[in-house]
Amino acid sequence: MPGVIALRNGRSAAVEMGVVWRAHDEYLHRDVAIKELRLGESADPADSAAAVRRMLREARAAAKLRHPGIVTVHDVVIEDDLPWIVMELIEGRSLADILDNDGPLAARPGRAGRDPDPACARRRAPARRAAQGRQTRQHHARR
């Protein structure tokens, strides 16, 4: 990836299947996050190939999604036959850092199962009404 992305020293985060690095895209002049696939040195080649396929599926699935609560995938770069996912960089503290420094998060009773975004609730309302209507019709049909 020379000339395109410059990995920066410092912050990285261990994640399932690898490490996420803070980097700088030298062409677009913006900071990004890069997920590196880490395979054990003694990894079975079949397991390694499966991990590469799984990471590429993850990148393709995430790239199709558009939502303020989901990180944007910008690109996938293949280097030495391994994928690196280039993503939007989200600034902030990690959950591990918050728990280590601030302690457990307080419970918020009554919030479970609710849409945090009112727009989501509005989009789901017609489907709920339709489902309720079907339940009512099915109930009357059984009598």
Results as ranks from 00 to 15, higher is better:
G133V: 02
A125G: 00
L105G: 08
P45Y: 12
A49N: 08
P116Q: 05
E36R: 13
V52P: 03
A119F: 06
I85D: 01
G133N: 13
A59I: 08
G110Y: 06
A14G: 09
P126W: 07
A51C: 08
R134P: 01
L56A: 05
A33Y: 07
R134N: 09
D115S: 09
L7Q: 08
R53Q: 13
Y27T: 10
A6N: 10
A141L: 13
A121N: 01
P45K: 12
H140G: 04
A62R: 05
R30P: 03
M1K: 01
D44S: 14
A6M: 07
W21E: 01
L95T: 08
A23H: 03
P126K: 07
H29E: 13
A106I: 05
G133Y: 05
T136M: 09
G3T: 09
A23I: 06
P116E: 04
E91L: 06
H67E: 08
A127L: 08
A13E: 10
D25R: 00
E88I: 11
S94L: 13
L37P: 03
I85G: 01
V4P: 00
R53V: 02
R114A: 14
L89C: 05
E88S: 10
A49M: 06
E16M: 05
D115Q: 11
R137M: 13
P83E: 12
N101Y: 01
P104K: 08
A63N: 04
N9E: 15
S42F: 04
E88L: 11
D81Y: 13
S48I: 00
M17R: 15
L95Q: 05
Q132M: 12
P126V: 07
R129V: 13
H139D: 09
G113C: 11
A112D: 12
V73F: 06
T72V: 13
R38V: 15
R54G: 06
A61S: 15
R143W: 11
A50E: 14
A62W: 05
D31P: 03
P45M: 11
V71D: 06
I98W: 05
N9S: 12
L105N: 02
G113W: 12
E36G: 01
A121I: 02
D31H: 14
E58M: 08
L105H: 02
A119K: 13
R114I: 10
L7W: 08
R134S: 11
I70A: 02
E16T: 13
H24P: 00
H74T: 03
D44N: 15
E16I: 05
E26I: 14
C120R: 15
G40A: 15
A23T: 04
I85F: 03
N9V: 01
L39H: 01
A130D: 12
D25L: 00
L82N: 01
A131G: 05
H24V: 11
I85H: 02
I78F: 12
P104C: 01
A63C: 04
V4H: 07
R38Y: 10
D75T: 06
R66M: 05
A63H: 07
L56K: 09
G69F: 08
D117I: 11
K64A: 14
L65C: 04
H24E: 15
A33P: 07
